[in-house]
């Protein structure tokens, strides 16, 4: 059964931060507050990394997600002041909502079931590849480690960047040139 030591309490505190923050993001009508809730949620995730003995990932989580990405979010929101008081209600997205609920249910069953089912095969030990920061660096670029996921992720980011440029590009520009 669960032992109630201090790391368990910390786990529940971070769980409340992560899930409560996420709930705040989707329920808030004010976009600026939404981004602040997003930061709370990301901070909770950083706490989980600390609990899983991955302080490097925790620091990077705070630095990249809260310190850089979320700050850019707030900056964009501040530039669009009309978005801070949203009154629009999206009520016709039932298929998407159903899909999201189904996906969530599948994830919950897939993750929770093995843990409580007592199947020893799924109780994976902590990775022994990554002990220090330099181990992490080697694991990311060595052929035996995670070089393929690393490259795929970078490809995905490049694709996302190109997509963002295509979407943001003004259609009138080409017409003006002609």
């Amino acid at each position: 059964m669960i032992q109630f030591d201090f790391s368990t309490i910390a786990f529940f505190v971070f769980a409340v931060l992560t899930l409560g923050g996420a709930l705040g993001v989707v329920t808030n009508r004010n976009l600026f507050r939404g981004t602040i809730w997003l930061m709370v949620s990301l901070f909770g995730v950083a706490g989980f990394y600390v609990l899983l003995s991955a302080p490097f990932l925790a620091a990077v989580q705070v630095l990249v997600y809260i310190g850089a990405i979320a700050i850019l979010f707030t900056f964009a929101v501040m530039l669009t002041r009309s978005l801070t008081r949203l009154n629009v209600r999206y009520t016709r997205l039932w298929p998407s909502a159903l899909g999201a609920v189904l996906l969530f249910a599948m994830l919950v069953i897939g993750v929770i079931w093995p843990v409580f089912g007592g199947n020893e095969m799924y109780s994976l030990p902590l990775s022994d590849v990554v002990r220090t920061t330099s181990d992490l660096g080697v694991a990311l670029v060595s052929g035996e480690g995670y070089v393929l996921p690393f490259e795929v992720a970078s490809l995905l980011l490049t694709g996302a960047m190109i997509g963002a440029i295509v979407i943001a590009r003004d259609a009138d520009e080409e017409e003006l040139e002609q």
Binding site: L63, I66, I71
Partner: peptide, 12 residues
């Protein structure tokens, strides 16, 4: 790294 991460909270 911790210092850089924490210092960025001041901006926020």
């Amino acid at each position: 790294l911790y210092f850089v991460a924490v210092a960025s909270l001041g901006t926020l």
